[in-house]
Design a protein around this nucleic acid. Structure first.
Lengths: 255, 255
DNA sequence: CGGGAACTTGATCTCGGTCAATATTGGTGG
DNA sequence: CCACCAATATTGACCGAGATCAAGTTCCCG
């Protein structure tokens, strides 16, 4: 049936194909990048932190914490992927961030309660810290406080990028951006890079990008017909044309 | 002409009118709220900070810094309103945040350059600090580092909220949310509260909410016809029905 | 294998974008 | 103080991307 008469007006959208882009980025999780003042929340302090809580494990699709629950613990991910999300009264859900190795999650808080829910997308290993003790530690150690500021700053950077994605990009561009983002995430963990594993269902990608699952699916189909992606099974992609993918994605960091 | 046959299907969107909402919130700029561990970036330290730079002044519509420029200074707003925004190659613009009294702006950075542009919406008075010296101060003082973490955390909270707004709310809900947000902002500064001054043009509100200026205008018209708002001149509104406004806005903090 | 969840695809509808006139309005100078 | 005018906002007509509703299809996972 239809093979190639679906096309995206790349031209109508920008002269960006002539612009420099798609340069390889520095690792997204390297510390001290955003504010430049901080040492990482690294193994040096991990001993301290472990003393506050300890290592725990969650199965795929398990909730680590839920929005509205009293905040007891915050978590530092060792392995795995966690999504933070919020749900409206009527069931509309927004995924506000994808967290992985090295990220803190569980804050910000809202009057002593979790503001978001955290759900394990894969098997997750994380350190859990009592929030009060963590706060005390932060308040007493400049390097911890800086590491926290830095972690938060990186989240803010990505949230701001996603604001641009949601506010300005059309559906296929958003999905392209998502693939680039997941690629960077996985690259930073040195896993699942070639057949790039997505770990999110179409519904979840939709809830992340402000689209319906059908539109996400159609966007993947378009990217496939454009020979930018190939779908590998249902939860992975192969990037066939990285340049055009990045052009569509309009990533801020390649500018 | 048409007076009342424009209506919003509130019912189709939620049972939220029955839910508790619209409670008055604690001041949005009160410090230490998000992480609970930090002292504010307050006048105690302001002496230190002033020594690093000094007070400066910008006229309405003046740019304080521009995305891509080498980052020299960061700013702490004393009075006025600043919007931070990013522009795509093709002219699409996203406003990623509205900053006001007490907020820091100018970071995060992107390889030593500003990631966003900062534009004064009103006359702005701010302290400008050399970034390097500021970093050094932060690295040397726990309370400064905590204050920075806290400022960043509040920005993240608001950015995450706006992700939900952009991803899940329809146009009129987004505009309602914007009005609530500006209301909280102005309330925290104890100015422009009754005829609530917006300070943003329809185009800017559109660039903030991911809508066109026409859709923003139509949304205001709808809110007027619903007797939720009255427009006062072109840049201010009177809130006639706070309860329904909050219901439409789906603010997370009233949940 | 078999069954159920996840995905794809199609048809249709609608909200918001686009293009195009007006209509306000607020700032400026006479 | 008023008249003018450029900038901003409103409104209308039309269109299209994405939502919605509805089958089918594929893919896992037991």
């Amino acid at each position: 049936m239809k093979t190639e008469h679906i096309e995206i007006r790349e031209d109508s959208r920008a002269s960006l194909s002539q612009l420099p882009h798609a340069r390889k980025l520095p690792c997204d999780t390297c510390p001290g990048r955003s504010l430049g003042v901080c040492s990482p929340l690294d193994d040096l302090r991990l001993a301290h932190l472990l003393a506050l809580g300890g290592r725990r494990h969650w199965a795929k699709r398990e909730f680590i914490y839920r929005a509205g629950d009293p905040m007891q613990m915050i978590y530092k991910i060792i392995t795995g992927i966690v999504v933070e999300s919020r749900m409206l009264y009527d069931g509309r859900r927004q995924i506000v961030g994808i967290r992985t190795t090295g990220d803190l999650c569980g804050y910000p808080e809202n009057r002593g309660r979790y503001l978001f829910s955290g759900e394990a997308l894969t098997e997750v290993e994380a350190c859990a810290f009592d929030k009060r003790k963590f706060d005390a530690l932060v308040a007493g150690h400049v390097d911890m406080a800086c590491a926290l500021a830095d972690d938060t700053s990186r989240k803010l950077e990505r949230a701001s990028e996603n604001l641009t994605v949601m506010g300005q990009l059309i559906s296929t561009e958003r999905v392209a951006h998502f693939v680039v983002e997941i690629g960077e995430l996985n690259a930073s963990r040195q896993i699942d890079t070639d057949p790039l594993k997505l770990h999110l269902t179409r519904q979840e990608i939709g809830d992340y990008l402000g689209l319906t699952l059908e539109t996400v699916s159609r966007s993947f189909t378009r990217l496939r017909h454009l020979r930018i992606l190939a779908l590998v099974g249902t939860d992975a992609v192969a990037i066939l044309d990285r340049k055009r993918l990045h052009a569509l994605a309009h990533t801020s960091r390649s500018a």
